[in-house]
C-alpha cells in the first residue's frame, strides 16, 4: 500500500489543504444514525479493513503537511501547545516506544526502528530523519521524548496519569485542539476537564466512561469517534487563538457552505502504557468539506439529517450556532425526501 503524499498543503492563510477521493473514502465517518447524541461509543481498537482502522495510529496523504503545520504552530508560541508535568518522563518514553513500534510495524516502507538494548536507531523516511539515541536518556534527543516523536505524528496526543481513582492531565501536545486551552487543562482531573461538556454528567456517561478507562489493560486499546465543525481547513483552533478564527464563523452562507464548512472528525484510540501505567489519548483529526462529503450521497443525506435535528446545546457547545442553518440548507439538496416529509407535516398540521 503506497500513499501519494501532498507535500506542501497549508492549514492556514491560503488554505490549500485538499483531500483526494481515496482519502475521502477512507475517513471514519462518525454518524451511525440520522440523529446524533453523545453515547458510550467505545469499542476495541482492533485492525479492521484497510481504511482508518487498519493501523494502530493511522497516517494518510496529509502526513507531511500536517507535521509541518505542527512545527509552525509550536514555533510561533513556545510553551502554549506542548506542556508536560516533570514527573511524566516515564510515560513520555512509553509513548515514544508505542508510536515508533506501531509506525514501524504498520508502515515499514516509511519507518524503521532498530534496537540493541537501550541503543535505538529510528528512521523516518517521510521527514528524512535518521537518528540514533539512548532509550531513557533525554539528553540524546533534540526534544523531550513526547515532543520529539509527536512532531513526527499526525493528530494531538494527551497523557493521563491515574491517581486516587481518577485520571489527571499530565502532558499533551495539541496543535489542533478544538477550542480549549492546553495550559489551562494541565493538572486537571477527568471531571474538571470535561466540565464544559453539556449533558454528559447528567446522563451518567462521564462516570461510566471513567470506570471503563480505569480498567483499560496494556495491549487492549479502545477507540471512539468525536466530531465538530470548523470553518476552513484550519487545524489550529485553540482557545488562545479564538480572535483569529472565530470571525470566520460569520462568513458562511447557504451558497458557500459546501466549500467553507468542514466536518472535523476525531478518531481517539486510547492505550494503557506499560511502565508508567499512564493512558494515552490520541486525537487524530480528519477534515472533510461538505463538498467532500457530498461525493458520497448517503453521507450527505445523513449529515443533513444529523445537523438539522441536533440538540441546540450541542450546537452551542460545538460553536456553530451562527452557521448551522446555512450548512443545513446547503446539504438539503442531497436530501430532497427529508425536505418533503417536513413540508407534508407542515401542511397536515
Amino acid at each position: 500500500m503506497t500513499i501519494k503524499f501532498n507535500r506542501d498543503e497549508t492549514y492556514r492563510d491560503d488554505y490549500t489543504f485538499a483531500n483526494s477521493p481515496e482519502t475521502i473514502a477512507r475517513v471514519p465517518f462518525p454518524f451511525p444514525d440520522d440523529d446524533y447524541m453523545y453515547s458510550m461509543n467505545l469499542e476495541p481498537h482492533v485492525s479492521v479493513g484497510d481504511g482508518a482502522f487498519r493501523a494502530a495510529f493511522d497516517i494518510d496523504e496529509h502526513y507531511i503537511s500536517e507535521c509541518r503545520d505542527r512545527a509552525i504552530t509550536l514555533e510561533k508560541d513556545p510553551g502554549m501547545h506542548y506542556v508536560s508535568a516533570p514527573h511524566m518522563m516515564e510515560a513520555q518514553w512509553d509513548l515514544l516506544e508505542l508510536i515508533m513500534e506501531s509506525y514501524a510495524r504498520d508502515y515499514p516502507e516509511y519507518f524503521t526502528l532498530e534496537r540493541e538494548g537501550r541503543n535505538w536507531h529510528w528512521v523516518n523516511r517521510l521527514l528524512e530523519i535518521d537518528d540514533h539515541f539512548t532509550f531513557g536518556d533525554p539528553a540524546t534527543l533534540p526534544f523531550e521524548p513526547m515532543e520529539y516523536i509527536t512532531r513526527q505524528a499526525q493528530g494531538d496526543w494527551v497523557l493521563q496519569e491515574e491517581r486516587d481513582g481518577t485520571l489527571y492531565w499530565g502532558a499533551g501536545i495539541a496543535t489542533q485542539r478544538a477550542d480549549y486551552s492546553l495550559r489551562f487543562n494541565l493538572g486537571m482531573s477527568w471531571e474538571e476537564f470535561h466540565g464544559p461538556v453539556p449533558l454528559v454528567k447528567e446522563i451518567g456517561m462521564l462516570d461510566r466512561a471513567l470506570k471503563f478507562l480505569l480498567r483499560l489493560r496494556i495491549g487492549h486499546p479502545v477507540r471512539r469517534l468525536n466530531w465538530s465543525l470548523t470553518v476552513n481547513p484550519r487545524l489550529e483552533v485553540s482557545a488562545e487563538s479564538l480572535p483569529e478564527w472565530a470571525p470566520d464563523r460569520t462568513i458562511v452562507t447557504p451558497e458557500n457552505a459546501g466549500k467553507r464548512v468542514y466536518l472535523r472528525i476525531e478518531l481517539q484510540p486510547l492505550h494503557r502504557l506499560p511502565r508508567s501505567n499512564a493512558i494515552v489519548f490520541p486525537i487524530r483529526t480528519y477534515l472533510l468539506s461538505l463538498e467532500d462529503i457530498a461525493t458520497n450521497p448517503a453521507w450527505a443525506r445523513r449529515m443533513h439529517r444529523v445537523l438539522k435535528t441536533l440538540n441546540q446545546e450541542l450546537v452551542d457547545y460545538k460553536g456553530f450556532s451562527r452557521y448551522r442553518d446555512a450548512a443545513v440548507e446547503w446539504l438539503s439538496q442531497y436530501d430532497k425526501e427529508h425536505g418533503k416529509e417536513d413540508e407534508g407535516e407542515r401542511k397536515a398540521g
Binding site: 495550559r183 486537571m188 474538571e192 460569520t250
Partner: peptide, 22 residues
C-alpha cells in the same frame, strides 16, 4: 469570564467576549 476553573493556575478562564463579531 467562564465558570471554568484550573486549580493549577488557581484561576478562572477568560476569553475574548466579542470574538465572532467585534
Amino acid at each position: 469570564v467562564r465558570d471554568h476553573y484550573s486549580r493549577r493556575l488557581a484561576a478562572f478562564q477568560a476569553v475574548k467576549a466579542d470574538a465572532e463579531v467585534p
